[in-house]
Design a protein around this nucleic acid. Sequence first.
DNA 1: CCCTAACCGAGACGGTACGTCCCGTCTTCAG
DNA 2: CTGAAGACGGGACGTACCGTCTCGGTTAGGG
Lengths: 225, 225, 225, 225
Amino acid sequence: MSPSARRTGRPRSAEADRAILDATRAALVELGWAKLTLGDVAARAGVAKTTLYRRWASKCELVVDAVAAVFDEHLEVADHGSLRADAEAAVNQLGALLERPETGTALMAVIAEAVHDEALRARVRSAIVDRQKRLVTVGRERARLRGELPREEDPDEAARNADLIFDVVAGTVLHRLMVSGEPVDPRWSRDFTELLLYGLTGATGAGPGGAPGTASPGAPHRAAP
Amino acid sequence: MSPSARRTGRPRSAEADRAILDATRAALVELGWAKLTLGDVAARAGVAKTTLYRRWASKCELVVDAVAAVFDEHLEVADHGSLRADAEAAVNQLGALLERPETGTALMAVIAEAVHDEALRARVRSAIVDRQKRLVTVGRERARLRGELPREEDPDEAARNADLIFDVVAGTVLHRLMVSGEPVDPRWSRDFTELLLYGLTGATGAGPGGAPGTASPGAPHRAAP
Amino acid sequence: MSPSARRTGRPRSAEADRAILDATRAALVELGWAKLTLGDVAARAGVAKTTLYRRWASKCELVVDAVAAVFDEHLEVADHGSLRADAEAAVNQLGALLERPETGTALMAVIAEAVHDEALRARVRSAIVDRQKRLVTVGRERARLRGELPREEDPDEAARNADLIFDVVAGTVLHRLMVSGEPVDPRWSRDFTELLLYGLTGATGAGPGGAPGTASPGAPHRAAP
Amino acid sequence: MSPSARRTGRPRSAEADRAILDATRAALVELGWAKLTLGDVAARAGVAKTTLYRRWASKCELVVDAVAAVFDEHLEVADHGSLRADAEAAVNQLGALLERPETGTALMAVIAEAVHDEALRARVRSAIVDRQKRLVTVGRERARLRGELPREEDPDEAARNADLIFDVVAGTVLHRLMVSGEPVDPRWSRDFTELLLYGLTGATGAGPGGAPGTASPGAPHRAAP
DNA sequence: CCCTAACCGAGACGGTACGTCCCGTCTTCAG
DNA sequence: CTGAAGACGGGACGTACCGTCTCGGTTAGGG
């Protein structure tokens, strides 16, 4: 049916899709998640509510798609030469994305909704989370090739570790922005990267933030005794 | 004025306050954040809607207070003997709190709203975030007394570090539960604690999760040469 | 514009209009004006409150229309052969209409409101008052044709007289029912008609009510000497 | 109990009563019946709601009393020398009273309520209607003494006639002002008096309004042939 | 070149929850 | 015991969106 259906009749307007997603982002910036209404989005897009509902089942799914498009455009996994640099770049990139007025809030709200909605959770995962996760997995793979990280034998454990690290990176950035309400500025992402690489107990003797500019790069993975 | 104000007229019923907060928690458990209705809360509490609106300006503020009470009851900062044990206990405690049906989702939604609402953000901070933060600060102080962590000279830097660590701990737990949708079970909190203490580059040679039961306690803060 | 407007979109349901007016009348009979609730009317009509508010701006306007329909159905201006008979019939008809549980009280309340509301006043006038007024004007016209009343030269004065007579007839009936709380029974309407035709000073020597059964019919418009 | 009760404790403030009734009239003028609220009246009077409710059971009763006071002050039954003059004076007086912004509307609304409330109806009757009625009864008595009206034998019939005449006078004036929305000006009250005294068929040959200034006084009760 | 099916806009529909207003009662404190 | 202040339970209000539906009109294919 998928291939045969939708052969006859007037095809859906591709322009409408674009206009709706643009309008959704604009409305998110202007009103925020809670005050965003589908009727308003339709009006902004110059489109009938019917048209909108034909394509998206709910506010959540629409917003997920609208936000996902932003992630698609702005996430890249360039090689910065070292684990540390890759990590810091990933933190900065995540921070920059979530600092946008249309993403962070919307994402939080959608995630809250998704807790009780399996289908929505899957959509969020495939449209947004997995895209971010690649930053981590690709970075780790590169670090392993560079010899910065040991090779992991157990694939199961490797997967667990990848998930853990992603939770740490994404969770921390999200928390910094949304809960603490502080920006992801260069100093903070350097401190965070430091902590991420060497832990609380610290490799540099100074702990995270301790003269990081000089000490950290020179002591990459803890001089063996 | 605070003490002299509200001298006249019928005083507000303390019982009503309690009934409303209880009803809010019950409704959160039963319906979740999205389907929670102020009218329904009032009905459950055996209270008129007016009474509820007299005290709380919005669903968000009500939920913050209701959730805060849960945190008040269940957060403790007992001494577990070592930084590692304290950290793991804090992770478990945070996990247990946010895994409750009435807290996690609601908190996410409220935080999403708070982005556009300064007053709400302050309320969340003082009622919930700061309470959690004590787990981190008290734990770090103890670790310092035990000699597990170096003394920090610059008080400014100390504050930055405390904030960073809290963002990492709380953000990671939140992300694990809400976004990844996985539980905070003993193995995960052990792995996370390991990562938190020793970083990606790892102290144990096996990286996070590598035979942590044996290696980690024996290599707490990396014997200095 | 009137005919061309409302071309697009789903047209309003004529059935909803009918159901709402029916429900309004039923609710008026059952609850009376004071306890009548727009929400209740909507529920009885099997209609959403929105639908009701889309058509009528207030309880008053709705009731005016509902009551007007009753007047439309029950007012007729049949020829009874003489001014006296026509007048008596008009009095009886007005009495019967205003004695209905859904009309009298509601009308009083609406009129009270209309004092401060020009639009409502116009609506009452065109929907109800003018319909009643025809009883008077048609009756007077017939009486003139029969020679029972003199021809009026000045059209302005004629209009003033028609208004006056209508105020007398309708006002008296309304007052009898609403203020005095007495019914419009045959004897009273005969007495009132007598007074209306011959005045306080009376044509029959006995004054109004004085042996009216015999005197009045025989002395229609005062035998000229 | 009536005489012995209310001996002890602080006596009720007579000033409060006055302030409340004044505030009620002011609020009626400003807001009209529908928008008048007891809380607002209490606030205007500088009195607690409790005080108000201790004295009046409902908005209706309060308004009746407030309006009644106006009638008490402004109704007088002076002798104007003839039935015609007395009638015209009564019409003018009634008109002037009901034209006041605080009386007419309120009266209509209260009467509408009173239809379903026996106690209220009695209160309206004794506080307002009967006061007006005296204008009619006293006038008729005087006219009888002057010989302008025949003596009535049957006391039952006399009562019926008095009621009828009052319904006509009060009802017509009320209808003129409230329903037709026209003022009770000198010409109208002259025309109405004419109609009231001589009826539709008219004593003057010219009908009501036909050169009434000259014809009517001279042809009082239609010379019998 | 027209037919026709699916599209589109507009907007009314039955609902649910909202937050406000006022009701009439109560509870407290001051005189 | 009165009176002010004001919180209380309750109920209706009128509004805002929801997601669905019914219209008339448009717009591509496929015949």
